[in-house]
Design a protein around this nucleic acid. Structure first.
Lengths: 156, 156
DNA sequence: CGAAATTTGATATGCTTCATAACAATTATT
DNA sequence: AATAATTGTTATGAAGCATATCAAATTTCG
């Protein structure tokens, strides 16, 4: 077994990233993977993925909405949202209720358990996940980062 | 057909994102999708995905490396890199050459066509893709954004 | 040296995400 | 009333991502 250093398995010398280090999309993707990874570490004990967490947050802030509305604002396609809701509903985190005004649509509501899990998740995210980012970047930089990313999401 | 405004299909009022707008992972993912989308618009005429583009860049800056080394630095698992290389090789953009020093490994080399396509891709990326980002953020902000994202990739 | 362990590229496989077409039930349009 | 559109759903396929396994080649080390 050749093991020169504890890490760097497979490379003898570090490779040159070249213009990749200046390619925003590349750095963005790498950072996003890291952040999601840490999210799962922090909130994984509640068995919540980032996508599921985002759904619960939206249900809490927007009561009375149906599947299409929630899915659309999250960029989830309606067909793919069905299985996702099945999962949340089977764990009793939310419920589909037939709308009385439009019997085609399902109004989505958080259950008490869903609300409780969401509160715990929010605390984990704030105290572990976002806190670690704050420590790494500092509050000012973190705010600037969020602002620029939001701008890209909206206007790019 | 009820069509109040040209856009916003499916929602009557915009939903509240709530704490999602302050969740770095959420904003990061949305921004990343937008950037990749634009990358494909700009360089799609060359039939290059972001991942393929990153491979070609790495091959150019790191001649004489094998599949494991290239895949590892890009975070691609070796099994998944095989089909990717098959695609690039079938389009005559790169070649696998058996190493003379280690007959297990394949040295990856850019073909002339691969080099030419890469140059054209780089120009498209610089003149259309990154230029648009520069216009949106400004050079200073863009540099700060890159710096913070790199820091997250490395140290988070 | 020579047996055992490791590495490399590859195949098979499964899971998750993402995208499209189509359908029944219901509602809106005209 | 007839037609079109919307909602949730199913089926389906492509793409990304992960693991186990394999043969060939190399390295390690008794």
């Amino acid at each position: 077994m050749r093991k020169e250093t504890p890490e760097a398995a497979g490379e003898q010398d570090a490779l040159q990233l070249g213009e990749l280090s200046d390619l925003l999309g590349y750095v963005l993707k790498r950072a996003q993977l890291k952040v999601f990874e840490d999210f799962l570490r922090c909130v994984g004990s509640l068995q919540l993925t980032p996508a599921q967490f985002s759904v619960l947050i939206l249900l809490e802030k927007n009561p009375g909405r149906n599947q299409t509305e929630i899915a659309n604002t999250l960029g989830i396609l309606r067909p793919n949202f069905v299985a996702m809701l099945d999962g949340l509903e089977s764990r009793d985190l939310c419920t589909r209720m037939r709308s009385t005004s439009d019997r085609r649509s399902h109004i989505l509501v958080l259950t008490d358990k869903g609300r409780a899990v969401l509160q715990r998740a929010k605390k984990l995210v704030a105290s572990k996940h976002e806190a670690r980012l704050n420590e790494l970047l500092g509050p000012t930089n973190r705010a600037a980062l969020l602002s620029m990313l939001s701008k890209i999401s909206r206007e790019f």
